[in-house]
Design a protein around this nucleic acid. Structure first.
Lengths: 244, 244
DNA sequence: GCCGATTTGTCCGTATGTATC
DNA sequence: CGATACATACGGACAAATCGG
């Protein structure tokens, strides 16, 4: 994990905000004060503040100061947001996670798949369908495409645990960027076969392309969630002023 | 508009990427080369690259270079993403926008509203319902709450045009941060009354709290979209290394 | 309204560390 | 091994916005 100085300051301030050491709407200490407190340069303080800003934790105001605008939100359903694995999300939401691999096969991308997934036609891919359960209830159906040349040696066994642990642990891949699109689609027969849809006729669908730190796309995933257990969070900023 | 040096570099590189002056997966010039090209400091180049990274346009690789990972996406449905108004979104998606105000009233926040919207109990609010049409088809139903003390003089007339033009133009409010949550909810009677839902029984719902540059929340909005015209885009980064 | 102090915003130059080739 | 490229950090300068006297 990063042991950079700005990261230490970032985490420290973040915790002070989350624990309401700084109250909602309160001003944080000035940059100058933080420089003294953390014994570092102004740039370093500002780097930490920039991260907090893009997290939606604080808001810098020209000539005035930096205001805490963090409000804890209640967690009823299954919240996704940053880059994290199903297991991590489940833990953060205090739920028991289980994964069942219902299809594990290989295929070669054609033009249609290229258009859909972003993998070049001719690429050899693993194609998986996985059913994800929370607290014993099947709620999410994943369709995963992995670039075989980059994700060698994937097995159904691994896929039923955490693919990402395998990628990051065994293969040394570091995931860097994920482009996601969120839509709402009609339920399919496959959805209904595995998930109790109650009277819903739609699914919340996250499709994502994931890139490693070499800029290589190694994954395309369509993750289909039952609506009542789905929540996606996001903070948008109008071109943040902070940093450098 | 910002006339900062880093912003100029940011826009210039962004355009070169979008127009494929740099090809997908190609390396950008090194930071050193960009410093020469733009006659500025390395910090400033890195600031521009940091913005492009968080836009999902490029990916910096330690010791190697910065790679272009931008792929244009096809626009079939109505795409939302950054902070923009309904009108702006409509234009970007090449659609005719129309807004009808179906309710315009005032109310005072109680405990229930505080929990839902984030406005303190006792706050005086405008409450609006607005029906949004694209190319003549009603597709989006907005429930807006505005803080009266901050958004003085709002009228149904203004609300049927662009509230944001009024806020930014007349009142001089600059919108800074927007916290959004995306869920999928069952259709309501109000939805069905105004929108032809076909056979869908769900809506894509974006709820957002918006803050001005003083860190004051002046808006809470629930925006309900018919599923087939809804698309939300996002780029997630695993703690970007860039900047400063 | 003016002036000076404070605070954030932009930009620069430099030094050092670390990963890649 | 050295050269290149990105990552972190420092210190300083000046601009722009805000606030108090």
């Amino acid at each position: 994990m990063p042991k950079a100085k700005y990261d230490h300051i970032y985490r420290d301030l973040k915790e002070k905000i989350e624990t309401e050491y700084y109250a909602y709407q309160e001003m944080l200490p000035s940059e100058h004060a933080l420089v003294s407190a953390y014994d570092c340069s102004r740039n370093t303080v500002r780097r930490a503040l920039a991260e907090l800003t893009s997290d939606g934790y604080v808001q810098p105001m020209h000539g005035k100061g930096v205001r805490n605008i963090f409000q804890p939100i209640e967690q009823t359903s299954f919240t996704v947001g940053g880059i994290e694995t199903f297991k991590e999300s489940a833990e953060r939401n205090h739920r028991q996670a289980h994964t069942e691999v219902i299809l594990f096969t290989e295929l070669t991308a054609d033009g249609k798949i290229e258009k859909k997934t972003g993998f070049r036609a001719g690429s050899k891919l693993y194609y998986l369908q996985r059913l994800r359960s929370l607290d014993g209830r099947p709620l999410i159906l994943d369709h995963n495409y992995f670039l075989k040349e980059r994700v060698r040696g994937l097995t159904p066994q691994i896929a039923s645990q955490s693919v990402y642990d395998y990628l990051e642990g065994e293969l040394g891949i570091t995931i860097a960027t994920s482009k996601r699109t969120l839509t709402v689609e009609r339920v399919t027969q496959i959805d209904e076969k595995y998930i109790d849809m109650k009277d819903y006729n739609c699914m919340a669908v996250i499709t994502s392309q994931t890139f490693d730190d070499n800029g290589i796309q190694f994954e395309f995933t369509q993750s289909r969630h039952r609506p009542d257990y789905f929540r996606f969070q996001d903070v948008a900023t109008r071109r943040s002023p902070l940093y450098p």
